[in-house]
Every structure is written in structure tokens, then in C-alpha cells.
Amino acid sequence: MPRDHPEWINERRRELGDRIADLHTAAGHTKKSFCEATGLSRRTLQRIERGETDPRYSDLLRIAAALDTRISVLVD
């Protein structure tokens, strides 16, 4: 976890990661197929899903497109 963020930001980051993981599992994606669908590396997706990093806007766009949803569904 980044050391300079307050805990509430870390918690929201973990919530985002959990939501992405739940949605890609519900959509029937494996880790490999989700990586292929998003064009993101397995490591990047793992870090996002564990809440270890702030995803770039372009990453969120790719994830939302692969899940056939809007970014607002991911970050709500």
C-alpha cells in the first residue's frame, strides 16, 4: 500500500479491486482471458484487484470495455 495515502483511500482502492474481480469472474473470464480482453498484464491486473495501485484512467477504460460496462459501475 502506498504509505502517503490516508486509510480511507486505501479502503476505496481495495473496494474497486474487489468489484473488478467479482465482475470479471461473473462475466466468465479467467485471469488469462481477462488479461487478453483488457490488454493489461497479469501483474497490473493483480495489483489493481488487490488494491495495491491507483489504476490509470486508460486502464479503467480497458477494464470497463472488457466487462461491457461503464467506468461508473466500477468506481461507484
Rank of each mutant, 00 (worst) to 15 (best):
55 P>S: 12
23 L>V: 06
7 E>I: 08
35 C>V: 03
68 D>I: 14
12 R>P: 05
6 P>G: 10
25 T>C: 00
2 P>N: 13
24 H>C: 09
39 G>Y: 10
22 D>P: 12
25 T>F: 01
46 Q>D: 05
29 H>L: 10
4 D>H: 13
13 R>I: 04
20 I>M: 11
71 I>V: 07
62 R>C: 14
3 R>P: 11
50 R>C: 05
44 T>F: 00
40 L>V: 14
26 A>G: 07
8 W>C: 06
33 S>P: 10
20 I>A: 13
60 L>K: 12
47 R>V: 02
16 L>M: 01
42 R>G: 15
28 G>E: 13
52 E>A: 09
5 H>A: 08
9 I>Q: 00
25 T>D: 00
40 L>N: 07
68 D>Q: 06
55 P>T: 03
2 P>C: 14
17 G>V: 06
71 I>M: 10
52 E>F: 05
61 L>R: 12
20 I>K: 09
40 L>D: 01
9 I>E: 07
20 I>V: 13
5 H>E: 03
15 E>D: 12
59 D>G: 15
68 D>H: 06
6 P>V: 03
48 I>R: 08
68 D>T: 15
27 A>P: 02
56 R>N: 04
67 L>I: 11
56 R>E: 07
70 R>S: 06
43 R>V: 12
68 D>G: 08
21 A>G: 02
32 K>G: 01
46 Q>R: 07
15 E>H: 00
28 G>P: 11
22 D>I: 12
